[in-house]
């Protein structure tokens, strides 16, 4: 019979070795906190500069009047409207294609070489530089499909570029719907499509919407893919069809900051501020949706 184990006579007092370990641990924590805070700096600086320099240039007039003198005077109305056309076009094209592809990958695809090839293609599509997308757009949409330099060609290019975002975010939303629901449906004799239509899609709407908003925020800011395919430096008319060329906010910003000489200092900042406000607003909505979706997991 062995003796019952006891603890040391000084109870659970810390040793010097432990104290050293704790000091290192605190130092490490501080270091990583500082690095993390450093990440905030560029965001805050950009916002601060834009607000300080650009806010005086913002007014209702600025949004509602067309640019004059190559953008040196007047507002940004035609560019704003053009950006809305381009973004909506990209959305209308990318959303159905992306959601359909995501449904296939999430609900139908088996793990085989074809599925893996599609996955790799999506990852690679997401990694293609936007200027390459632009040149692809010129070749495929402007010339090969004969859309000419137009909103349609530019929107198609933006859609191809944003497809991976739609696919990945939609697929995540679909996969977040518990497998048990699908099993319940299948065991009641539902086909895959009935299961998707009645149960999976209605319960992943929030996630799909998030993807949609990310597409908007990405498409609003892109310059390269549209400058060869449909956006022009200056156009006095609002677009009247998808076969028109158009101005766009992002390209207008490039224009007034680098191409035109006598631009008042506040104009480029005001354009940039408008652009970033649109993008931030879109991202904020997307994040809110995502958080509400996570909070609602009370199946």
């Amino acid at each position: 019979m062995t003796a019952v184990r006891t603890v040391p006579t000084d109870g659970f007092a810390t040793t010097s070795r432990e104290r050293r370990a704790l000091t290192v641990q605190h130092a490490a924590r501080l270091l990583f906190l500082l690095v993390a805070l450093l990440l905030l700096a560029p965001v805050l600086c950009i916002l601060a500069v834009l607000v300080v320099e650009g806010a005086p240039g913002l007014s209702l007039d600025f949004f509602l009047t067309k640019p004059r003198d190559n953008g040196a005077a007047g507002g940004i109305a035609t560019a704003l409207v053009g950006t809305i056309w381009l973004t909506m076009g990209a959305l209308v094209l990318a959303l159905p294609l992306g959601v359909a592809a995501a449904i296939y990958l999430s609900e139908y695809a088996r793990d085989n070489w074809l599925t893996r090839t599609i996955q790799v293609a999506i990852v690679n599509l997401a990694g293609v530089p936007s200027i390459v997308h632009a040149l692809f757009g010129v070749g495929a949409f402007v010339y090969f499909l004969g859309f000419g330099k137009s909103i349609l060609a530019a929107s198609c290019t933006l859609a191809v570029m944003t497809l991976p975002v739609v696919i990945v975010s939609t697929r995540e939303a679909l996969q977040a719907v518990p497998k048990a629901f699908r099993e319940a449906c299948w065991n009641m004799g539902a086909t895959r499509w009935q299961t998707i239509w009645h149960i999976v899609l209605p319960n992943s709407g929030g996630g799909i919407l998030t993807g949609l908003i990310l597409v908007v925020s990405r498409a609003v800011g892109e310059t390269a893919p549209i400058m060869f395919t449909g956006a022009v430096f200056l156009r006095a008319l609002y677009p009247s069809s998808v076969f028109d060329k158009t101005m766009a906010l992002s390209l207008h910003l490039f224009n007034v900051s680098t191409q035109v000489t006598n631009v008042p200092r506040h104009v480029p900042f005001a354009v940039a501020l408008t652009l970033i406000m649109v993008v931030l607003a879109m991202n904020a909505i997307a994040i809110t949706f995502r958080m509400r979706l996570r909070g609602r997991k009370k199946w």
């Binding site: 518990p178 048990a180 629901f181 099993e183 319940a184 449906c185 299948w186 065991n187 009641m188 004799g189 086909t191 149960i199 319960n203 199946w299």
Partner: peptide, 18 residues
Amino acid sequence: IQVRRHVGMVFQRPNPLP
């Protein structure tokens, strides 16, 4: 589908649909 309609299944964890 007809087989599953006439032969019902109940699972370990209750899985009512949402």
